[in-house]
Simulated scan of single mutants.
Amino acid sequence: MPVDVILLVLFGALLHATWNAIVKAGSDKSLDAALISAGGAVSALPFLAFLPLPQTAAWPFIGASAVLQFAYFQLVAAAYRTGDIGLVYPLMRGCAPLLIAATSGVILHESLSAGALAGIMTISAGVLTLALEARAGSGRAVIFSLANACVIASYTYVDGIGARLSGNAVSYTLWMSLLPPVLLFAWATFRRGAFAVTKHIRHNWWRGLIGGAGSIASYGLALWAMTKAPVATVAALRETAILFALVISVTVFKEKASIWRYAAGVVIAIGGLVLKLA
């Protein structure tokens, strides 16, 4: 994988860990997740006029992605309501590349080198070690996290293929971001009422803009990278966001990190190096 692709995927991983921390820190995680999705759409709007429309073949994937993104944000909020970030984030992000690596040969007909496969397995081992080390969290948190790993693997496939068919990965990403917040806020309004939703937006809109811009930029970088390198390899390298999440948990949330968390971080870094050399 080229160095410039690796660096941009790593920057996207930092952005991803940051917006997840914003959701975890929020008082209403469901509405904060919806706000971040909306912030991504708002960030996308100014650029749409300057980009070509995605090719016709990509639009069914944009529609499917919207449904999967709706499920993703719902499960993110549910997982963070019931579990510690040290448990939830590694499980969600660590299991997804394993699922993709195990099935990409059948679904995408991509062949991975032995080195790339070793890097994927090393990164996944590191993030799963972090999850096993974390003691906070309930059985429900584990269920939500594993379910979301399946959703992540699903939308990675959908968007990886859709971005390739679209002719322009950036355009695909921006158009893909518009529908999920509509679904999320429609559902929130149905469940919570317009007054509660409006009140939360009025007091927390800035969280959505900051987190949303980071979210759309992070995913856009990943989709662009998927047009330059195998989907499974990019998906695994993106999971180095765990390292950034660990730093955020210690410096911002003041969570205590054991030696096992740091050891797992080293394993993840080694996995990234293996991917670079593959």
Rank of each mutant, 00 (worst) to 15 (best):
V274P: 00
P97F: 02
L45V: 11
K199F: 10
A278L: 04
K256C: 14
S171A: 10
F190M: 13
L87P: 08
M121H: 10
A269W: 09
R238F: 06
F244G: 08
P181A: 07
C95W: 09
K228Y: 06
A229S: 15
N168S: 15
L8F: 11
I6Y: 04
Y262V: 13
T240N: 02
P52K: 03
W175D: 00
A21V: 05
A264F: 05
L53I: 03
V158K: 04
L165P: 01
G271T: 01
Y72D: 04
I107V: 14
A194F: 14
V142M: 10
W206R: 14
F195A: 13
I22C: 03
S215M: 13
G126I: 07
K228S: 12
S111M: 13
A125F: 05
H203P: 12
F47A: 12
R81I: 13
D28W: 02
G63I: 14
P180M: 01
V127Y: 06
S30Q: 12
G115F: 04
V127L: 14
G40Y: 03
V234S: 01
L15A: 13
A188N: 13
L184R: 00
M92H: 12
I152H: 12
G86V: 08
P54E: 06
G39Q: 02
F244A: 08
L68T: 04
I36Y: 02
A188E: 11
V274N: 00
Y262S: 14
F253V: 06
L246V: 10
P180E: 04
L15Y: 08
G272H: 00
Y89L: 11
Y72F: 11
I62R: 01
I107R: 09
L108F: 05
L237S: 02
Y262I: 14
M1P: 00
S27Y: 09
S30D: 14
A222H: 10
M176K: 04
A225N: 04
L132A: 15
G214W: 05
S124M: 04
Y157Q: 05
V197S: 01
E239F: 15
K276P: 00
T82V: 12
S104N: 11
W206E: 13
A269S: 11
P54K: 06
Y80N: 05
H109V: 10
S166A: 15
I123R: 02
